[in-house]
Design a protein around this nucleic acid. Structure first.
Lengths: 181, 181
DNA sequence: AGCTTTTCTTGATAAAAGTCAATGCCTAGG
DNA sequence: CCTAGGCATTGACTTTTATCAAGAAAAGCT
């Protein structure tokens, strides 16, 4: 999952036992709006996008998850309600999926796992806060500039209209911004 | 802090020992941009706003924290860098503040505390996600409508220009939207 | 009560971003 | 090799929101 946390062989077994590794091909769904989400998915390789589709059929990308991040719909998870989001692979992707019950059990029983998860949750929360900040404070151009420097390389991996959607812009607007650089 | 979690008297003592209760008067800062934030603050009563000030002197409100929520700057906490946000009381407010070291120790040593915190973190993260969704998907009017139904009563407690700032709008625009309802 | 500061509203105008429509370019699939 | 679908760009035009400026209303202070 991450870094320097050292699991004992027994712990690794326990984690493996609760995990399902799934490989998704480009465009394949991990979650479709309307389904109830009860898992946590860690991206081992590739990239996922979480997005909603509005009344006009426009997509709005809530977030990307690349290597060492996770994708989840806490809203559906905590409420038990069907999700309003889709989670989809933007490229061939490998994820480690844990059912939420198992996930919570692991957190209780394996302190090292809990520690890693805590760090990940706080990191994800921080990223969400920071994103709120850009979304309400920055102009279209500033948002794009920040995106470039915050996620270097990602712009090469995903189509531009998805970047636009992530930034809350139309593809046309982003195209025009890029022309001026 | 919350709900049904049952702490033993000894645990309550331990939590109290690590906590500082602060009362803030309206407009008083809990954190000023430039300072390093190393705590966690739970709102017992009142309301805090977290905001940044941009190059033009405009304020952008990242979030409000009312009863049973918390306010924190994870960015500064995790990075050790000076904060780019201010946290300020919008009304007379009582907060329970825990230094992050003590906070983490409590999480390790008091499982019931850890449980409550986990729930709070996930709830806060969920709210941030949902906010990102509205920020990039909704028009000004839709954002205001959602705000009204999502935080009923809050609009009575804080000045309108702060609501506008929270929604990423100018005070004038919000005023015009309200006229049409 | 009277004064000051903050807050809210309104109008006129400008800027930013969205919409609609057309075109060309790739590239994956048959 | 050819073609269809997805992707990016551009232009003309519209809509939305911001900006600037001025007052009015409300709230806080002494």
């Amino acid at each position: 999952m991450q870094s320097k946390a050292s699991f004992t062989p027994a712990e690794i077994e326990q984690i493996k036992a609760a995990s399902v590794v799934r490989t998704l091909r480009k465009r394949q769904y991990l979650l479709q709006a309307g389904d109830v989400w009860q898992s946590n998915a860690f991206v081992a390789s590739g990239c996922l996008r979480t997005y909603s589709v509005d009344a006009k059929g426009l997509e709005h990308i809530i977030g990307f998850a690349v290597e060492n991040w996770w994708a989840t719909d806490q809203e559906s998870l905590l409420s038990g309600q069907p999700s309003r989001y889709n989670i989809e692979a933007t490229e061939d992707t490998t994820v480690v999926v844990l059912k939420n019950d198992d996930f919570e059990q692991l957190r209780r029983e394996v302190p090292a796992f809990d520690k890693v998860v805590n760090a990940l949750v706080l990191r994800t929360f921080m990223a969400a806060q920071s994103r709120v900040h850009s979304a309400i404070s920055y102009s279209a151009e500033e948002k794009y500039r920040e995106f470039l420097q915050k996620y270097p390389g990602l712009v090469q991996r995903i189509p531009q209209h998805m970047v636009a959607s992530y930034l809350g812009l139309t593809a046309e607007t982003l195209s025009r911004i890029r022309r001026q650089l």
